[in-house]
Amino acid sequence: MRKMINFVGPRYIFIGISLAAIALSIVFILVKGFNFGVDFAGGTMITASFNKPDLSVSEVRDIFSKADPAFTNASIVKLMSMTSKGTTTQKSLFDLTVKQFYNASARAKLNADVQNVAKSHGLTVNFESFETVSGYAAAGLRQSAIWASIIVVILLLIYIAIRYRFVFGIGALASLAHDLIITAGLFSMFWITFDSTAIAALLTLLGYSLNDTVVVYSRIRENLKKMHGHPIDEIVNVSINETLSRTINTSLTTFIVVFTLFLFAGSVLRPFSFGMSFGVITGTYSSIYIASPILIGWLERRRKSLAKR
């Protein structure tokens, strides 16, 4: 027989660790907040390319703030350099974010002014991408993100409640909340842009974490019948062990692909792949150490009350 790892024995330790991680995450979220992307906060993000590969952030700030003082406080990130299509010219790429909204004419003026300043530095600049969101549109996006999250959680719970016992729904909810709060906390901690793709990652992660949890739960349900008379904690532990290689294989392969995406894909997919990478880790952890062990108390009480009857 394969060796059984005792997951449920030290469950209070792991639940304690998780509670501490959740508390830490909440502190980060409340104190430090999120690095909201322009789609949630409003403002403008420009990806600008310069025809000089080794341009520094401060030179770029200098050029932009001469053209428009709003860029004095812009957040500027240097990206991997880019080779333009059909040529071998190396260009340096920068993401610039400001809180202002630029309408058509303001944008045209900014573009012209930046071009002029860059020209005086002997550079040519090109706006590779330009995203500007007014406060109004940002509020709308925030609202639909909140609605999406609420609806997803409700629908997932309804599904679990239909397919499994109510207790399982509670366990699943606890582990979902665990994953969501910790991953959101990581976004705050590492100051990763929190935009709509981050929300997409968080919600997909909910699906994945639930997927992991469901696999273990369906095994627990099966074993509750099969192993009648055995202590609940043993049944739960056996179920976790039986599904362990599946959990690890699945999580590992998913982690490999999303983490490769995080390492190599550009800034657009960074929030998404960050959320997914760390989400897969917390999701796997929670389905092993949180979702199932916290069922034990409930299931034991239920069995006792059934026995009394």
Binding site: E128, S129, T132, A137
Partner: peptide, 9 residues
């Protein structure tokens, strides 16, 4: 809202 992305990027 405006989002413009150059074809190269």
């Amino acid at each position: 809202e405006e989002q413009t992305i150059g074809p190269t990027l």
